[in-house]
């Protein structure tokens, strides 16, 4: 009898995770377009930037950024719980929390970020910076607005993943995978915001 040697046992790449990363690659290019708009307008109309960036509330934006970065941390703890296949908490201590508790906390932090941004928009609009006021307004609201829409989409995704944890009797690898890919998305959106914050508020 002559058999070929069997291929070694391997962990095949998770198609959902790899697919999500490839899609996030396309999201990089979406935001590349927005950054290109921002930098191009800034280079052709520096006087608008000088006038409008003075109205930005940088300390407030810094606090808001910190909230979003912290939400990425809590999201990752939720992923660790999902990887242990632990959906719910076994006790009140954070070390005993399951994915659901961590993701609810992440949701709260993310919602605080969005609420903070709405407050910031309202303040800026009352000071005369609107999407139609000038090129600065358009660039500012397009970049931060599309990012805000992504955050809002992520919040909905968190709710759907939490719902899946409640829908099954046994939290398994399929549920853990959806938690992990939502965390990929959330970290990506977080990193994009750090880029936007550095460009809009720090670099101005």
């Amino acid at each position: 009898m002559n058999y070929a040697t069997r291929a070694p046992k391997i962990n095949r790449p998770n198609t959902v995770a790899v697919g999500t990363i490839v899609w996030l690659g396309s999201e990089v290019m979406f935001f590349a377009g927005l950054f290109a708009i921002y930098f191009t307008l800034r280079s052709v109309a520096p006087e608008l930037w000088e006038h409008n960036t003075a109205l930005l509330n940088v300390p407030f934006a810094l606090v808001n950024t910190t909230i979003l970065v912290l939400s990425s941390v809590t999201c990752q703890f939720g992923v660790f719980a999902a990887e242990r296949l632990q959906a719910r908490s076994t006790g009140p201590k954070p070390s005993q929390w399951g994915m659901v508790e961590w993701f609810f906390l992440t949701y709260t932090l993310g919602a605080m970020f969005v609420a903070g941004q709405i407050w910031e928009y309202a303040t800026l609009v009352s000071e005369g910076v609107t999407i139609a006021s000038d090129a600065y307004g358009s660039a500012f609201y397009l970049t931060t607005g599309f990012h805000g829409l992504h955050v809002a989409g992520g919040l909905i995704a968190f709710l759907l993943v939490i719902g899946r944890a409640f829908a099954v009797k046994n939290f398994g690898h399929k549920e853990a995978t959806s938690a992990i890919v939502v965390s990929y998305y959330w970290h990506f959106v977080d990193v994009v915001w750090i880029g936007l914050f550095l460009v809009i508020y720090f670099l101005q």
Partner: peptide, 18 residues
């Protein structure tokens, strides 16, 4: 020329990320 510079650099980021 910011449009090209940003897009080419972030295309590099896209490939490196994957």
């Amino acid at each position: 020329e910011w449009a090209g510079t940003v897009t080419l650099t972030l295309t590099a980021v896209l490939a490196a990320f994957l």
